[in-house]
Simulated assay, not measured.
Amino acid sequence: MEAQRDRLVTLCRDAGIGQAELLADTLSLLLEGARVSVQSVGTEGPSARLSAC
């Protein structure tokens, strides 16, 4: 997870985002939530869209 967050920080900085770390943390939480939702909702829930990307 740390490597993914670091990559997100780099992408955000490269995109000119002023608060790159904050956005990277927010995106990391969203991605983790999507991964975990498969446990409670199943593979046809919101996580199905994540795996389609």
Rank of each mutant, 00 (worst) to 15 (best):
M1I: 09
M1Q: 08
E2T: 14
E2Y: 11
A3E: 13
A3W: 02
Q4A: 15
Q4F: 11
Q4Y: 09
Q4C: 07
R5A: 07
R5W: 09
D6A: 15
D6L: 15
R7S: 08
R7G: 06
L8W: 13
L8Q: 06
L8V: 04
V9Y: 00
V9L: 07
V9A: 12
L11Q: 13
L11F: 08
L11M: 12
L11D: 10
L11V: 12
C12P: 01
C12F: 14
C12S: 15
C12E: 08
R13S: 12
R13D: 06
R13T: 14
D14R: 15
D14C: 09
D14A: 15
D14T: 15
A15H: 05
A15D: 12
A15L: 12
G16I: 05
G16V: 07
G16H: 09
I17Y: 05
I17F: 02
I17L: 12
G18Y: 04
Q19R: 14
Q19T: 11
A20R: 07
A20Q: 05
A20M: 06
A20S: 11
A20K: 05
A20T: 06
E21V: 15
E21Q: 12
L22E: 11
L22W: 07
L23R: 03
L23M: 02
L23Q: 08
A24P: 01
D25P: 02
D25Y: 03
T26G: 02
T26C: 05
L27A: 13
L27V: 15
S28N: 04
S28A: 05
S28R: 06
S28E: 08
S28P: 00
L29R: 05
L29E: 04
L29W: 01
L29G: 01
L30Q: 08
L31H: 03
L31S: 03
L31C: 01
E32V: 06
E32R: 07
E32F: 02
G33S: 13
G33L: 01
G33I: 05
G33M: 09
G33T: 01
A34H: 02
A34T: 04
A34M: 08
A34S: 03
A34V: 03
A34E: 07
R35D: 08
R35W: 01
R35Y: 03
R35P: 03
R35F: 08
V36P: 00
V36N: 13
V36A: 14
V36W: 10
V36Q: 15
V36Y: 07
S37M: 04
V38H: 12
V38N: 12
V38Y: 11
Q39K: 11
Q39A: 13
Q39L: 15
S40L: 11
S40P: 01
S40Q: 10
S40D: 09
S40F: 13
S40C: 11
V41Q: 14
V41D: 13
V41H: 07
G42K: 06
G42I: 02
T43E: 09
T43L: 14
T43N: 14
E44P: 02
E44L: 13
E44V: 04
E44G: 10
G45N: 06
G45T: 01
G45K: 00
G45D: 02
S47F: 01
S47V: 04
S47D: 03
S47N: 03
A48C: 10
R49G: 06
L50A: 03
L50E: 02
L50C: 00
L50Y: 07
L50W: 02
S51D: 14
A52K: 10
A52R: 11
C53K: 10
C53E: 09
C53L: 15
C53M: 14
